[in-house]
Design a binder for these strands. Structure first.
Lengths: 209, 209
DNA sequence: TATATATCGTTAAAAAAATAACAAAGCATA
DNA sequence: TATGCTTTGTTATTTTTTTAACGATATATA
């Protein structure tokens, strides 16, 4: 699968940002953009932008710049957003429900197929047509429904256990929101999102100013 | 305010992670830890850990290591979590409500004082005793209630406008969840949290494996 | 008390990332 | 068509970040 020789983490983390800006420009009818203009908008250097894009092959043209919608499409493909993904959420608490309610994911091809929880009062309910099911049914559901992405929204002390269950059932991507770094085998991708971390960094910066 | 000579962004972004691990160890009764042990737990190098801590002065002792609760406290102070902060949330949608419902922030001294929205059906309701008010009342509320942190959970096209209102009212920290990079004057700290970005990075990694 | 061991703080080296520089290639204009 | 301008892709340089090395200092043990 690995299409490109070892692209650095730093570059990869910038891809979604490029994608955001390009999508926006495309929507606004912008047809072409130079690395210079893009650098102004995004607060990066033009040099970095050109180098980043060149990790994946040159999408631009000398004397012209980049075609916005073409570039946008390339980045969509690089990120893998041209494909669809089936998703489940473990944990129907505040955050789990908020994610289930958010329609933006579907627009990028992420389809939430079910939510799982331990709370009997939640089981049986549904959010936007997505059923909340007993967490004991999760492993079977994953196996039978071709689920690629598992979202972990359970409390901290259950996060690793739930992750393990997802991994055992064949999920290859874990998007974890519990405030702990969950671990996965080498062949399972994981993103530990720590919302509080950014809040703490924020107040650090505020106090530093 | 700037206590330490230019600590790099990379180091600052690791502080919350140290804090998380140390808090956990402290809770579990661990009294001392060496940079070596900590590096094993956290997946960093011991060298990096020692260098990071030394940006803020040495907290350890040769031949012994670090006292966990002492170190934890130091990092708490460095981040500014020994103080309390008054917070408001703009946008009582899914995410705004989820954040308001999350009790973890209070444990670190972040007190949510009010939520603001445009929706008349939400205005007047309350979440955990936190009132949802008309967004037109936001500026006055900020001015009169010593608010330091503003959380932006409004739709993308209103995010910059709401940010501006917060800044005009004297808020010094913006924690933005709208999928756009909001901009602030130099003396106002901002963290643009893009949840989708981490999802996209996740599937990139999955496809790469 | 003396000696061996552990571990920090700090300086040095290596690696990675960002920036700058510039030739090559296309566009635009006369 | 010829000439000047723009802008890329790519190589070189600089800066930043990470890792390694090691003297100094404390602990632990005999």
């Amino acid at each position: 699968m690995a299409k490109y020789n070892k692209v650095s983490e730093a570059v990869i983390r910038r891809l979604p940002k490029y994608y955001r800006y390009l999508k926006d420009m495309e929507k606004n009818g912008v047809q072409r953009i130079s690395s210079r203009e893009l650098s102004d908008k995004m607060g990066l250097t033009a040099s970095q932008i050109r180098q980043d894009f060149n990790c994946f092959g040159g999408f631009g043209q000398q004397g012209y710049g980049y075609n916005v919608s073409e570039l946008c499409n390339e980045i969509r493909k690089i990120l893998g957003l041209h494909k669809n993904y089936n998703v489940i959420i473990a944990g129907a608490g505040n955050l789990g429900q908020a994610l289930a309610n958010y329609i933006g994911f579907e627009r990028e091809g992420f389809y939430i197929k079910a939510i799982f929880d331990v709370n009997p009062r939640l089981i049986g309910m549904s959010i936007r047509g997505i059923q909340i099911m007993d967490i004991d049914a999760m492993k079977d559901f994953i196996t039978n429904n071709d689920i690629q992405v598992g979202v972990v929204c359970v409390p901290k002390d259950k996060a690793q256990e739930v992750t393990n269950q997802m991994v055992e059932s064949g999920i290859k991507s874990i998007w974890n929101f519990a405030p702990i770094d969950v671990e996965t085998p080498d062949d399972v991708a994981v993103e530990n999102v720590h919302l509080s971390d950014t809040l703490y960094t924020l107040v650090y910066k505020m106090n530093e100013i």
